[in-house]
Amino acid sequence: MVEAIDFRNAMSLLTSAVNVITTTGVSGHHGFTASAVCSVTDTPGTLLVCMNTSSRSYVHFIENKILTVNVLAAHQQNMSQVFASKLSSEERFEHGEWTTLMTGAPILKETLVSFDCKIDQIQEIGTHAIFMCAVVAIQQNTNKSGLVYFNRAYHQVGNEDMV
C-alpha cells in the first residue's frame, strides 16, 4: 500500500487547473477551491468533481444537487486563496463579481469558463465524494491565460495575446 504522504507528493507533480466550485440553496451560497475536476464525456456533457466529505460545505452541495465549476483565469489567484481560506461562506462571496446561469449556482465573472451543472450521482470513496455532474449551461469568456497548480505553487499558462 502506498503511504498517503507519498501519494500527495506524487500528485503535487500533476498539473491541474484551479477551480472555484460553488452552489446555492436555502442555506445560502457555498464554495471551495478544487483542482480535482475532470471531463467524463461530451455526450452528454459531464464533469466529475471531487470534494472532501469533511468540508463544512459538503452537506450543502449534497442538499442543493447543483454546482458550478468556475475555471479560474490567470489573474484570479486571489479567488482561489479566498475559497480555500477559513473565511465564512458569506465572506467568500463578498470577493469577485457574481452572476448565474440556468441552475442559479453562482458564476464568477471573468473566469476562463464556467460550467453550470446538476449533480446526477454521488459516490463516496475514502475521505472524498465524487460528484458526477451533467453540464446544463456554459459561459466562456475572452481570457486567454489560465491558472494552474503544480508542485504546490500557482502558475500561469496560455497567452493573453493569443487569438
Rank of each mutant, 00 (worst) to 15 (best):
92 R>M: 08
92 R>S: 04
92 R>V: 00
93 F>P: 06
94 E>L: 15
94 E>R: 14
94 E>D: 11
94 E>T: 14
95 H>C: 04
96 G>T: 00
96 G>I: 01
96 G>N: 04
97 E>R: 10
97 E>Y: 07
98 W>F: 07
98 W>G: 00
98 W>D: 02
98 W>V: 03
99 T>N: 01
99 T>M: 09
99 T>F: 00
100 T>F: 03
100 T>I: 05
100 T>L: 00
100 T>R: 07
100 T>H: 07
101 L>H: 01
101 L>T: 01
102 M>Y: 11
102 M>I: 15
102 M>N: 14
102 M>C: 13
105 A>N: 05
105 A>K: 05
106 P>C: 07
107 I>L: 13
107 I>N: 04
107 I>P: 02
107 I>D: 01
108 L>Q: 08
109 K>F: 05
109 K>E: 14
109 K>N: 15
110 E>F: 06
110 E>A: 06
110 E>K: 07
111 T>C: 15
111 T>I: 06
111 T>W: 03
112 L>Y: 00
112 L>M: 10
113 V>F: 09
113 V>Q: 04
113 V>E: 01
113 V>Y: 01
114 S>P: 09
114 S>H: 06
115 F>E: 07
115 F>R: 06
115 F>N: 03
115 F>A: 11
116 D>P: 05
117 C>Y: 07
118 K>Q: 12
119 I>H: 10
119 I>G: 02
119 I>T: 08
119 I>N: 13
119 I>S: 04
120 D>G: 12
120 D>T: 13
120 D>I: 13
121 Q>Y: 12
121 Q>L: 13
121 Q>P: 05
122 I>Y: 08
123 Q>T: 15
123 Q>M: 13
123 Q>P: 00
125 I>F: 12
125 I>P: 02
126 G>V: 01
126 G>L: 09
127 T>Y: 09
128 H>E: 03
129 A>D: 05
129 A>R: 05
129 A>V: 05
129 A>T: 08
129 A>Y: 02
129 A>S: 15
130 I>L: 13
131 F>S: 08
131 F>Q: 08
131 F>W: 01
132 M>C: 10
132 M>E: 11
133 C>E: 01
133 C>H: 04
134 A>V: 02
136 V>R: 05
136 V>P: 06
137 A>E: 08
137 A>S: 10
137 A>Y: 05
137 A>C: 04
140 Q>D: 10
140 Q>Y: 09
140 Q>W: 10
142 T>E: 13
142 T>M: 10
143 N>K: 13
143 N>D: 12
143 N>C: 08
143 N>H: 15
144 K>W: 04
144 K>M: 11
145 S>T: 15
145 S>Y: 08
146 G>H: 10
146 G>M: 09
147 L>E: 02
147 L>D: 04
147 L>W: 04
147 L>K: 07
147 L>R: 08
147 L>N: 03
148 V>T: 12
148 V>R: 10
148 V>K: 11
149 Y>S: 14
150 F>T: 02
151 N>R: 13
152 R>D: 08
152 R>I: 01
152 R>K: 15
152 R>N: 14
153 A>M: 11
153 A>F: 06
154 Y>G: 01
154 Y>H: 09
154 Y>F: 15
155 H>T: 02
155 H>L: 05
155 H>R: 13
155 H>Q: 12
156 Q>E: 14
156 Q>H: 12
156 Q>M: 11
157 V>Y: 01
157 V>P: 07
157 V>I: 14
158 G>S: 06
158 G>V: 02
158 G>C: 03
158 G>W: 03
